[in-house]
């Protein structure tokens, strides 16, 4: 049986998270198909067809699928679900929203946020904010899975040449409708996929002071992140939040500035390759996971660091 990967996209561009989910699909083994459910999303389907290791792209194009409403996208997945042994979504806001709806309709359990593929029915996943890793086995006929994108290296976006097949798009459920979207503007790399992340915490003191991190992030080509404390205090927008309840990141370099290192924050960043912590409190738990710790006043250390780079 084949594996279906649900593409993450905005009708214009295929999102990188799809390539990570494809990597997990290839570890399971079998033909890999990609479903692009969207509106005027032919370009996305073309991009998906070029990804390495994709055997077929299914394009369902219709107005009901324009905004990724869970009711409609789930119905679209269910329309073809019977041909697949595994249905994979990237564990993004969209994947997490839709996957359980598909699983429940199929009367199967869902595996959330897998970290590795042990075999076609056995996977590992984090529990208790990443403080434990469970190896779990599903006996269901269809495995509905969300994939932690930072745990799988993306497949190449070029080099494939899959055929694109058009499906008829589902009708609108009529139960929900899209009203508006408010996009946080950023010229920096996307947080979840960035190679370097600079994050600020409550220690930044104010939204004004948070701008101190801009220069450092620019020098490093980094995305900006924040702890929940900083977001709750209004220093940073909420989509910058790194943690159990925000984004999970695993960059090459993570710089934590004025972040104490609560369990919920560590859950979002402790798989980073190198962690640097700058904090004036030598007892802060962040130093327990940091490769390089600097006990210093961030208002002196950050400008100095920026200058030294």
């Amino acid at each position: 049986m084949a594996i279906l990967v649900i593409a993450e996209h905005d009708n214009q561009q295929l999102k990188a998270a799809t390539l990570n989910a494809l990597a997990a699909a290839q570890k399971i083994g079998g033909d890999v198909h990609v479903l692009v459910a969207g509106n005027q999303a032919a370009g996305v389907a073309q991009a998906a067809a070029k990804a390495q290791g994709v055997n077929k792209v299914l394009l369902a194009d219709g107005p009901a699928l324009a905004d990724g409403l869970a009711e409609n996208v789930a119905a679209q997945v269910l329309a073809i679900a019977s041909s697949y042994s595994h249905i994979l979504f990237p564990a993004t806001a969209s994947g997490k929203n839709i996957a359980p709806r598909v699983a429940a309709k199929l009367d199967v359990a869902q595996l959330s946020d897998i970290l590795s593929v042990e075999s076609a029915d056995t996977f590992t996943r984090p529990i208790y904010a990443g403080n434990a890793v469970a190896t779990v086995q599903s006996s269901d006929a269809v495995k509905v899975i969300t994939v932690r994108t930072t745990a799988f290296d993306a497949v190449a976006a070029e080099g494939g040449s899959a055929a694109v097949e058009e499906l008829s798009a589902v009708a609108d459920s009529g139960r929900s409708s899209f009203v508006s979207r408010e996009v946080a503007k950023s010229d920096r790399p996307e947080l979840a996929g960035a190679g370097v992340v600079v994050s600020g915490g409550r220690g930044m003191g104010s939204a004004e002071n948070f701008k101190l991190l801009d220069g450092l992030a620019d020098k490093l080509g980094a995305a900006l992140g924040a702890s929940r404390a900083a977001v709750d205090a209004g220093y940073a927008p909420n989509d910058w939040q790194v943690g159990q309840t925000g984004k999970i990141v695993a960059p090459q370099l993570y710089v934590a500035v004025g972040i104490s290192g609560a369990i919920q924050h560590l859950a979002g960043m402790k798989d980073s390759k190198v962690i640097v912590a700058i904090n004036k409190d030598p007892e802060a738990p962040i130093f327990g996971v940091a490769d390089y710790g600097l006990v210093a006043d961030l208002f002196e250390a950050v400008p100095a660091l920026e200058k030294a780079l």
Partner: peptide, 14 residues
Amino acid sequence: TREVDGGLETLKLS
């Protein structure tokens, strides 16, 4: 209003 990757979106449900 929902928190999604990259910002917020508003839906209306019956």
